[in-house]
C-alpha cells in the first residue's frame, strides 16, 4: 500500500492489520517514555485546507511518538492567501522531501490528485463529503476494544449522512468487518445514491434503538448546509436526537459514539455524552495509536517502500 486514500485501499485484512499494530502502539503509549525510534529520519507533512483540531493534532502526536519530524501547513498563514494553487503548494512542500503528506481539503478527490503529484505517501485526512479513512479506522478500533469484534454487531449511523465523509468511510469499514449498519436520518439528509450502499435505511430512531449495539451520531454540519434541509434544530433533536429518554431505552452495554466536534444537545444530549458508554474521549485517544499504525504501515512495513 503506497497511500491511504480510501478505506477500500485497506480491505478487511488491512483494517485488521491496522488494529493489530494499534494494539502495539497502545502499549507504547503506556510506557513511561511513550516514544519509539521507528520513524527516525522520516518527515511527515500535514497539509490542511480545512479547519481541524483533533485530526491534525492527532497525526502530529502520532508522528512525533514514532520519532518522525513534523512539518505543519495551514491555509490561514500560508501563501494560499496569495493565490497559490494546490498543485504549486504540493510541489513546494514535496521539494522539501517529506515521506508522508497528510491532506485535508473541502473538495472530494484532492488527496487522490495530490498522490499523483508527489513521491510521498499520501494520507487522506478528509476530503469533502467523500472519505475520512483514519476516522473510520479509529472507530473500528474503539468498537473492537469495547465489544470484542464488529462481526454481527448492529450499528446505527445517525444524522447528517449526506454531508458526512465520516459516514462514507465508516459504512465501508464497518460492513467490511461484518457489522450490520442502519442509517437513520431525515430523508433530506440521506445521500442520493444511498440505495446502492450495503446498509439498511430507517427514518425512525425509536424503531431501531432498543436492539442496536452502537449509536454513531454524526454532527449536523451547519457549514455544509447550502439549502434548507431541516426545518429547525429543535425539530431535528425531537425526531432524531439521542435524548436522555431515548438513551435509556438502549441496551445497557450499547455504545454511544461520535466523531466530534459534537453539537451538545443537538445530536446527542449532554447527559448522554457524559456516561461511561459514550466513547468520545476513547475515540480521540485511539486516534493517536491508529494513526501511528497507519504511518508505520505506509512508511516502514511496506516491503515496496524505499
Amino acid at each position: 500500500m503506497r497511500h491511504l486514500l480510501s478505506i477500500s485501499d485497506l480491505g478487511v485484512e488491512g483494517i485488521e492489520e491496522v488494529c493489530r499494530l494499534a494494539d502495539h502502539f497502545t502499549e507504547v503509549s503506556q510506557r513511561s517514555i511513550p516514544k519509539v525510534p521507528a520513524l527516525r529520519g522520516k518527515t511527515v507533512a500535514t497539509l490542511f485546507y480545512e479547519d481541524s483540531t483533533r485530526t491534525r493534532l492527532s497525526f502530529e502526536v502520532a508522528a512525533r511518538r514514532l520519532s518522525a519530524d513534523v512539518m505543519g501547513f495551514s491555509v490561514s498563514n500560508s501563501s494560499v492567501n496569495k493565490g497559490e494553487s494546490v498543485r504549486d503548494t504540493v510541489n513546494t512542500i514535496s521539494a522539501m522531501g517529506p515521506d508522508a503528506l497528510v491532506v485535508r481539503h473541502r473538495s472530494a478527490g484532492v488527496p487522490h490528485q495530490v498522490a499523483a503529484w508527489t513521491g510521498a505517501a499520501v494520507i487522506n485526512a478528509g476530503d469533502g463529503w467523500h472519505e475520512h479513512p483514519t476516522q473510520a479506522l479509529l472507530d473500528c478500533y474503539t468498537i473492537r476494544d469495547r465489544l470484542g469484534s464488529l462481526a454481527g454487531r448492529r450499528i446505527v449511523i445517525l444524522g447528517d449522512v449526506k454531508h458526512s465523509r465520516v459516514a462514507r468511510s465508516c459504512v465501508r469499514a464497518f460492513t467490511a468487518l461484518g457489522a450490520k449498519v442502519t442509517l437513520v436520518a431525515p430523508p433530506t439528509l440521506l445521500p442520493p445514491a444511498v440505495d446502492s450502499w450495503p446498509v439498511d435505511i430507517g427514518f425512525s430512531l425509536d424503531a431501531v434503538l432498543t436492539d442496536c449495539d452502537v449509536v454513531y451520531g454524526l454532527r449536523v454540519q451547519n457549514e455544509r448546509q447550502s439549502e434548507a434541509l431541516l426545518p429547525s434544530l429543535r425539530e431535528y433533536t425531537a425526531q432524531w436526537g439521542l435524548t436522555v429518554d431515548r438513551a435509556a431505552r438502549m441496551k445497557p452495554d450499547a455504545l454511544v459514539m461520535h466523531p466530534g466536534p459534537v453539537n451538545r444537545g443537538v445530536e446527542i444530549a449532554p447527559e448522554v455524552l457524559d456516561r461511561p458508554n459514550a466513547t468520545l474521549n476513547e475515540q480521540v485517544r485511539h486516534g493517536v495509536v491508529v494513526r501511528m499504525a497507519v504511518l508505520y504501515l505506509l512508511l516502514v512495513a511496506d516491503p515496496n517502500s524505499p
Binding site: 499494530l21 494494539d23 502495539h24 497502545t26 502499549e27 507504547v28 519509539v36 525510534p37 521507528a38 514514532l66 508505520y296 516502514v300 512495513a301 511496506d302 516491503p303 517502500s305
Partner: peptide
C-alpha cells in the same frame, strides 16, 4: 520491532505486544 536499526531495510512487523 520498533527499535530495530534495520527498520526500512526489510518489512518489519511486531509479533506480539510487550507486557
Amino acid at each position: 520491532a520498533f527499535h530495530r536499526d534495520d527498520i526500512g531495510l526489510r518489512p518489519l512487523l511486531p509479533e506480539a505486544p510487550t507486557r
